[in-house]
Design a protein around this nucleic acid. Structure first.
Length: 394
DNA sequence: GATCCACGGGAATACACGGATG
DNA sequence: CATCCGTGTATTCCCGTGGATC
């Protein structure tokens, strides 16, 4: 267990022996500083960024791999470290008009989920590049684009931007990203991270460098779960045999493994148990749809969309029988302050994005008109509920 | 006054299906 | 039989408005 976790454990300990000590530690959307079991990939990434140690930029790249393979974990950790290391080597002063460097690159990590418009994308990059705060409103797209260019042009500063989660339903894909970043500056290069297999992407859209992050091996997943459980749960809360069972079920997907662990732990805690029983684990695994939308994607939705989703997962089955019924029930829910049209539009949007699925009715005859469709969440609902309520409830 | 973005509302389009038409 | 039409819903699309910020 690392020091930070030990301290946190003490800090949160209110005397009772709680099963869940630290929800963050078993939260699939929270990454640890030192990813485990990714040695070869890390070496590959370090080879890729190697030019920066000579003051040059590497080419644009695409880092890809299946869901839950640790792409975000490793790239965030890498960029964080690079940023830290390089900011110590020289006194770098960033302002929007002047960037004084000793020609060491700057590293910026951008989550495309929060940068879904051109404006937001440029804003996120500029914000990671300069010290001062960058206005989010009141200035136009052109103005923020030229500010970014100015920040990069005059003094030969350079930046490597990691853009995570490209190619999701609501984020830019590789081609769109390249189209927006290429014209910006010669001193900007990007590393896109996504799930899409390069084989199914137009060759013209692929950057020169490709780095694969394969799914975790079983034993690596066991290590990860063990590590997370030891940081987030009471001692001996999870038996080794159960860890193996979980890892086997998750089939290389760390997100799903942790999501199931989260649900299992929460269930065991609710039943006032001191450790996770087999049935808790079974319930945990049953609570994760497969494939599941990553919880991070759900949490990255706008606040109002989360409000709607939060209400949706509490609805009874019959209230989800049609979009109309769900709309009415959600709009009437406590804490939802949106018109029916907006709720309905959101429900269609969420379905379009794959967060939920619309299942058309096996219509029983006689009825007139187009049949309605049932609304089914494709998210780790219990994880979302718990994290959402922890956050908003206090 | 300019700008971005979220809401809200309504118009336009798609779909399902039975029945009419060629 | 294939196609079109009418009716009633479901779904998608689009744009005006207004809050918040510069």
């Amino acid at each position: 267990m690392d020091l930070k976790s030990r301290i946190r454990r003490r800090q949160r300990n209110d005397g009772s022996t709680r099963l869940v000590v630290d929800y963050d530690a078993i939260n699939p959307a929270v990454h640890v500083e030192e990813p485990t079991g990714r040695g070869p990939v890390l070496e590959r990434l370090l080879d890729y960024v190697d030019p920066v140690f000579d003051g040059d930029l590497p080419p644009d790249a695409y880092v890809f791999g299946p869901s839950g393979s640790g792409k975000s974990a490793i790239v965030t950790a890498l960029f964080e470290q690079l940023r830290r290391v390089f900011s110590q080597t020289g006194s770098i002063i960033h302002t929007s008009t002047r960037v004084l460097t000793d020609d060491t690159p700057t590293f910026v990590y951008v989550d495309a989920r929060g940068a879904a418009s051109d404006f937001a994308l440029y804003h996120a990059i500029l914000d990671g590049l300069v010290e001062e705060t960058v206005p989010e409103q009141g200035i136009g797209l052109e103005s923020i684009r030229s500010r970014l260019q100015q920040a990069l042009e005059p003094y030969d500063s350079s930046v490597l931007v990691a853009v995570d989660h490209v190619g999701e339903p609501e984020t830019y894909d590789l081609a769109e990203l390249a189209g927006r970043l290429a014209p910006t500056s010669d001193s900007l290069r990007w590393t896109a991270i996504g799930r899409g297999d390069p084989a199914s992407i137009e060759a013209d859209d692929l950057p020169p460098e490709r780095i694969e992050v394969p799914a975790y091996e079983r034993h690596a997943l066991v290590d990860i779960v063990t590590e997370r459980a030891s940081n987030g749960l009471a001692r001996r809360a999870l038996q080794h045999e159960e860890t193996r069972r979980l890892a086997s079920w998750a089939d290389g997907n760390a997100h799903d493994a942790l999501a199931a662990l989260f649900v299992a732990a929460d269930r065991a805690a609710a039943a006032d148990r001191s450790r996770i029983h087999n049935e808790d684990l079974t319930a945990g695994m049953d609570g994760i749809p497969r494939p599941s939308v990553p919880i991070g994607r759900v949490l990255a939705l706008s606040d109002t969309r989360k409000v709607v989703l939060r209400a949706l997962i509490d609805l009874d089955e019959d209230e989800r029988e049609s979009v109309d019924a769900a709309t009415a029930a959600i709009a009437a829910s406590e804490g939802v302050d949106l018109s029916e049209s907006t709720v309905k539009r959101f429900l269609y949007e969420l379905a379009e994005a794959g967060i939920t699925e619309r299942v058309s009715h096996p219509r029983s005859t006689r009825e007139i008109g187009r049949p309605p469709s049932r609304v089914e969440p494709r998210i780790p609902a219990l994880v979302f509920r718990q994290l959402y309520d922890l956050q908003s409830g206090g």
